[in-house]
Structures are given as C-alpha cells and as structure tokens.
C-alpha cells in the first residue's frame, strides 16, 4: 500500500533522513517508532504529500506522491485519513460539524444520514454527548478522539495516526487501541501509527519500524523486536537512557557551556 524508497531529506542543513526504505502491506497495522525529533511526523507529511523529499520516493496505492499534481493529490487524499498530532480541529465549528465536515464537503448525503454517520462515529470514541461542544471546550485527549472520529468518517483506505495515544487516560487508550485494530480489520483499512508507547504499539501493530538517526534501525514483528539483542532495539524497547540512541539533541559540551561567559 505504501512503499518508501531511498528517502533523503534535510532541513536547514540538518539531515533528517539519510536513506529510508519501508514497506507497508495492505490491510496491516504498521507502527513507526523512534525517539522524539527523529522525523516521524516529517515522514508522515511525506507520505501524505504535505512535504516533498530531497530525493527518493514515496508510493501510496501505486502512485508516486511527490510527482502528483494538486488535483491528483487531493484525489488521493480522499482515500486517506490523518490524525494530526495536535488534533487540528476546526475551531469555528462544534464537534458534530467537525466530524461532519468531510461528508458535507465531498458528498451530497441527506442530513438524516449525515447525522446518523456522525453520531455513530462519535459514539465509538465515546463523545456522542459532546457533539454540541466547541473545540475550545474540549480537553486535549477529547480533541484527539474527535479528530480520530473525523479521520475515520469517510471510511478511508489508509489511515495515518500521529501519536494517537498521547494525552489519553488508560481507559480511552484501551478503547482507541481496540478501535484502531477493529476499523483496520473490519473495513480492510491499512493503518500507519506513529507513537512512542512501546507496550501499546506491541499489542496492536503487525510490523514495527524503528527509526533512529535518519535511518531504519530495526524492523519486524513485535516479537522480533522484543527478542532482538541489537543494542539499539533493546535500549528503545526497554527505555534505557544510555545506549546508541542519544537522549540529547546535538549540543556543545555541557560543562563548557555552563562555565562559558554569557555572550
């Protein structure tokens, strides 16, 4: 469904990707994990055509995303749903209208049917009662669940989730996990999840790609990765501060900088 080949990208002279290859099977749940700031969101932006790579290409459903024109891209996106890291709800509309938005824009369904679909989707994320609230009245976790309902409302073929679990309490987390798996299996959707939550990901994903330092450090099923004795994989899966993955963003020597006189 999604094939990434030889992806290179740098921004402001900092190399983000130096050769990424990745393959997402149709109908699977694929997770992309990696330390904060390694470019997971950027990778999703390339898969959805919001950003272009320096070289290499991304194919979605057989189409080279980077080479598509504007209308073709919009066309492709009708078959995609994306959950933004911050929800990105439309602040002018209430929860109901936010979820109804894609339906109103792309279909001519009668109001009764729209109402039915939207309420069903809101019910699955447990927010049917919040339909009349404005986005400003929601908590972060609620906003993300509304955004999830909105991403699913058009029954897309590919669903892309950027950090779906961040800010969710354990109960919603469990619900969202099951929801992702269920929509994936019931509707034959392909799902890509970006997340740091190792345990949750292991319980839901078919394949995991571990992104580190601009390339794929490891790939495989959750069992593969848990059983792996590559240092980098163990460090990430077990959350150890020391290892090949630096916890710090590149910086000058710590003591030196503290002792330095203010410029």
């Amino acid at each position: 469904m999604v094939v990434v080949r030889g992806l290179h990208f740098s921004i402001n002279g900092r190399v983000i990707f130096s050769g990424i290859d990745l393959n997402v099977r149709r109908g699977s749940v694929t997770a992309i994990m990696g330390p904060s700031g390694t470019g997971k969101t950027t990778l999703l932006r390339m898969m959805t055509g919001q950003q272009r790579p320096d070289s290499g290409n991304v194919e979605v459903d057989g189409q080279d995303v980077g080479a598509l024109g504007r209308t073709q891209l919009l066309d492709l996106r009708r078959r995609m749903g994306m959950l933004f890291q911050n929800g990105a709800l439309l602040t002018d509309f209430d929860v109901f209208e936010n979820v109804a938005f894609p339906l109103r824009e792309h279909t001519r369904l009668p109001e009764r049917l729209i109402r039915h679909i939207v309420l069903t989707k809101l019910q699955t994320v447990g927010l049917r009662g919040a339909a009349q609230l404005m986005p400003a009245e929601l908590s972060g976790g609620m906003a993300r669940r509304v955004a999830l309902a909105r991403a699913m409302v058009m029954d897309p073929r590919l669903l892309v989730y950027d950090e779906p679990f961040a800010g969710l309490d354990p109960i919603s987390m469990g619900v969202v996990l099951r929801l992702i798996r269920q929509t994936n299996d019931a509707l034959g959707i392909t799902s890509i999840i970006v997340s740091h939550d190792v345990q949750e990901i292991c319980s839901v994903a078919d394949t995991i790609y571990l992104l580190s330092d601009g390339s794929i450090a490891a790939a495989g099923t959750p069992q593969d990765l848990n059983g792996s004795d590559a240092q980098i994989v163990r460090q990430f899966m077990q959350g150890l501060p020391d290892g090949p993955v630096p916890f710090h963003y590149p910086a000058p020597d710590y003591h030196g900088q503290l002792l330095e006189r203010a410029p």
Binding site: Q50, R77, F84, N86, A88, L89, L90, F101, E105
Partner: peptide, 22 residues
C-alpha cells in the same frame, strides 16, 4: 493566521478540501 498555525489549513488539505477555496 491562527488557522495556519494550528494546522487547521493542513487538516483541510488532508481532508482533500482546498483551503484556498473553502
């Protein structure tokens, strides 16, 4: 500007809605 900063315009693009038109 606020819609741009809060990703609302990007979200519309992802919903295959052209924010320039909409």
């Amino acid at each position: 500007g606020l819609m741009r900063a809060t990703d609302q315009l990007a979200a519309m693009e992802m919903m295959a809605v052209d924010p320039l038109r909409r």
